[in-house]
Design a protein around this nucleic acid. Structure first.
Length: 271
DNA sequence: ATGGGCACCTGGCTGC
DNA sequence: TGCAGCCAGGTGCCCA
């Protein structure tokens, strides 16, 4: 899936087509996503003008007059901008048909994504209520991360992937940020020095910003709303590069498993 | 509170 | 060619 840069690329690519348009209908071909698509969603959304398209963590929020559509892309989801009449392909689960004939089509082979509806403040929705700060906000600072890590024994990589600590840092960018900061992924979070928290926070912000600028990272399925891949893959230092030479020191990149996820690092550059 | 493991699901690749 | 096994951008939930 989509990590934060891919979700942000989706938001900025869809927004010009969506904001200000009226939803003509929502077509649900497959309601069995991570959570069942609420049966009332198409009825609620029909005839509503899309007032805003925002993002919180990896959730996309379509602000309507009477509530909010909450969309999560899961591991393998994508949202594409198409035109009315383009035939649905495999795993094209949802269409949001707009009044000018544009179709926003949600495709998700693994169905880990979700499409939800809330009439209330979406930020108070159970899934969003207790999320940590955005990584690109000022709130996510050295001091903040140091405090969140204090006394914690979990590996630093797992800490930065914890959405109660900071949102939007997934498996690719966690490894990449730790490489850039020169910190080994296995280090106990509470044992990092102040300068290391500072370096890590800086690296997280930097890698996410650069990836957004490149349209995200495409490994397998991810495509932007225009159906194009993201170009950050060629900028990756460690992710999916096990055995290949470190771009900085030529030492072979190592891979191991942490919390059932693959981690990549350079033994020479990270300590 | 914290940490660890499982579950949800499909498809692509590898190796026998 | 077929098929079993393993892996994949996430994250909520249950248990110790």
């Amino acid at each position: 899936m989509p990590e934060l840069p891919e979700v942000e690329t989706t938001r900025s690519g869809v927004a010009p087509f969506a904001v200000g348009r009226v939803i003509e209908q929502v077509i649900v071909r497959e309601a069995r996503l991570r959570w069942r698509v609420p049966p009332e969603l198409p009825t609620r959304a029909r005839g509503q003008r899309i007032q805003s398209l925002s993002r919180r963590a990896k959730y996309l929020l379509f602000g309507l007059g009477n509530g909010t559509i909450i969309l999560h892309l899961g591991m393998s989801g994508s949202l594409r901008v198409l035109s009315r009449g383009s035939p649905p392909m495999a795993h094209d689960h949802i269409d949001i048909v707009l009044d000018d004939g544009v179709v926003l089509r949600f495709n998700d082979p693994r169905r880990f994504g979700s499409l939800l509806w809330t009439p209330d403040d979406p930020l108070q929705h159970p899934l969003l209520r207790s999320l940590a700060p955005e990584p690109l906000s000022d709130e996510f600072s050295d001091a903040y991360l140091a405090k969140a890590a204090k006394g914690r024994k979990v590996a630093i990589k797992q800490l930065v992937m914890n959405s109660q600590v900071v949102v939007g840092v997934g498996n690719i960018y966690a490894s990449e940020a730790l490489f850039r900061a020169g910190i080994r992924p296995k280090r106990a979070a509470g044992r990092l020095k102040p300068a290391e928290f500072a370096a890590l926070v800086k690296s997280i912000k930097q890698v996410l910003r650069e990836a957004i600028r490149q349209g995200g990272t495409t490994l397998r399925d991810y495509v932007n709303p225009q159906g194009m891949p993201g170009y950050f893959r060629q900028k990756l230092f460690v992710y999916e590069r096990a055995g290949e030479p470190c771009r900085v020191c030529k030492t072979p990149i190592r891979q191991f498993t942490q919390g059932q996820r693959s981690t990549y690092f350079c033994q020479q550059c990270q300590s």
